[in-house]
Amino acid sequence: MSYNVTLPRHSKIGAGAIEELGALCLQVGVQRPLLVSDRYLVEMGQVERLVGILRAAGCDPAVFSETVPDPTSSSLLPGIEAVRNHKADGVIGFGGGSPMDTAKALAVLAKAGAEISAFKAPSLYAGPALPIVAVPTTAGSGSEATQFTVITDDDTDEKMLCPGLSFLPVATVIDFEMTVSMPARLTADTGVDALTHAIEAYVSRRANPFTDGLALTAMRTIGTNLRRAYADGHDKAAREAMMLASTQAGMAFSNASVALVHGMSRPIGGHFHVAHGLSNAMLLPAVTRFSADAALDRYADCARAMRLADDSTNDAIAAGTLVDELDVLCADVAVPSPAEYGIQEKDWNAHLDVMAQQALDSGSPANNPRVPNIDEVVELYKTIYA
């Protein structure tokens, strides 16, 4: 049985790779890029740095820095205008998952002439789009290597998963030095996000031998380095390892898809404005516990990849060790429950049914080893609350 694999065409990886951004843009035919970023990176001087690199290479960039966390359909409108005003021939997503998701959406909307809701799953869009170059500054979202973007619908608070080849960056720059200034909270949330990508890609019903290798390697690396990067943001070896693992996990889930954690995570973000990586972290231990018996061998492989068990360990014991480790890891990096995050119980309970339905409608839970019904999803939401 054959399977399909799609990856960025060009990747520059390693310390100092950002200095090659301008040459890379020209290599993929982008001379007038719109650099899509956020105000924080403007204030840090990083946007100005990239503009200088682009101009030195002969590019003529413009900047759109008004992206918002968890971008919405309305937040895209000024970005579309910026693309058109600059007559951009490509977009650069520079930042965490939100600027990269925004850039991907702008690249498609600039050519497709439709609203972003037209592209949500189960749609698969492979039509006209501007070339996308991705420059991540966090080690977590993996968006630089995926054929997905996530945009929240202003009218319904639904986090829409928009998939398809046109959302895949043609090139990416993976420079771990861009992540050294990440605070501990962001390091933790994005790191557990990357681990979730790797585990879900490996246990997904759409996993394949190509994605398996990437996912297992990413798990091993994250298991070894996440606590180090969280404890000491200037540990460059840990930062470099986490950056590469994040991209490997992104490549894995882009081609194997994600599963129940992500399906349940998006509604939490949409209704309660919890960052995507953090909502994944809130869910990962409980969803793994719920799912493990349906794929003991796969979850046992995850435990072995993370050096929690060896080949002599019974699969059931190894899978249980994985669940225990996820509980401990999330405690070690101070992942809060929804209650600890500040979500009121009455508000949480009032949204349970709609969140559960949106989770199932996203399609991701159908990839899970154990496919839940709506009542089971509601119970899982109740389980993680406190």
Score class of each variant (00 low, 15 high):
147 Q>V: 03
351 H>W: 02
91 V>Y: 03
305 A>V: 08
210 F>N: 00
204 S>V: 10
66 E>T: 11
256 A>C: 08
210 F>E: 02
247 T>N: 14
218 A>D: 00
50 L>Q: 15
6 T>M: 15
293 D>L: 02
287 V>A: 05
357 Q>Y: 02
92 I>R: 11
275 A>Q: 09
369 P>K: 15
114 A>H: 14
346 K>A: 12
14 G>M: 09
77 L>A: 14
217 T>H: 12
275 A>L: 06
20 E>Y: 09
305 A>M: 11
315 D>E: 05
351 H>D: 12
44 M>P: 08
173 V>I: 09
281 A>Q: 04
170 V>E: 08
318 A>D: 15
342 G>F: 00
140 G>Y: 02
283 L>G: 11
104 K>P: 00
274 V>N: 03
82 A>T: 10
90 G>C: 03
211 T>H: 06
224 T>K: 15
86 H>F: 01
181 S>H: 11
291 S>A: 10
62 A>F: 07
265 S>H: 01
215 A>L: 12
334 A>M: 10
188 A>M: 07
277 G>W: 01
34 L>V: 10
125 Y>K: 00
50 L>A: 07
201 A>H: 08
327 D>Y: 14
340 E>H: 09
203 V>I: 10
316 A>Y: 08
183 P>G: 08
235 D>V: 09
319 A>R: 15
362 S>G: 11
237 A>L: 12
374 I>R: 15
331 A>C: 06
201 A>W: 01
35 L>I: 09
60 D>H: 14
61 P>A: 10
202 Y>A: 04
149 T>Y: 05
365 P>V: 12
370 R>V: 05
33 P>H: 13
379 E>A: 15
134 A>W: 01
97 G>D: 07
124 L>N: 11
380 L>H: 06
64 F>D: 07
193 D>A: 04
74 S>C: 12
15 A>Q: 11
157 D>R: 09
142 G>M: 06
344 Q>N: 11
227 R>L: 13
161 L>C: 10
85 N>E: 14
197 H>P: 02
169 P>K: 10
213 G>T: 11
195 L>S: 08
58 G>Y: 03
148 F>H: 07
155 D>R: 10
247 T>Y: 12
67 T>G: 07
48 E>W: 08
284 L>D: 12
41 L>K: 07
241 A>F: 06
186 L>G: 04
341 Y>D: 00
221 T>Q: 01
189 D>K: 00
70 D>G: 09
358 Q>V: 06
343 I>Y: 01
280 N>L: 09
262 H>Y: 03
312 S>K: 13
163 P>I: 14
155 D>V: 10
138 T>D: 02
305 A>F: 01
184 A>C: 03
258 V>K: 03
321 T>D: 11
49 R>Y: 04
296 L>F: 00
225 N>S: 13
272 F>L: 06
157 D>H: 12
150 V>Q: 01
20 E>N: 12
181 S>L: 13
371 V>C: 02
76 L>R: 02
131 P>G: 04
221 T>G: 01
385 Y>F: 14
158 E>W: 01
165 L>F: 13
91 V>H: 06
145 A>N: 02
116 I>F: 07
330 C>E: 14
115 E>W: 01
17 A>N: 07
348 W>C: 05
159 K>F: 04
29 G>L: 06
60 D>Y: 13
171 A>W: 10
355 M>E: 04
355 M>S: 03
374 I>D: 00
218 A>W: 02
279 S>T: 12
341 Y>K: 06
344 Q>E: 15
23 A>V: 10
87 K>I: 07
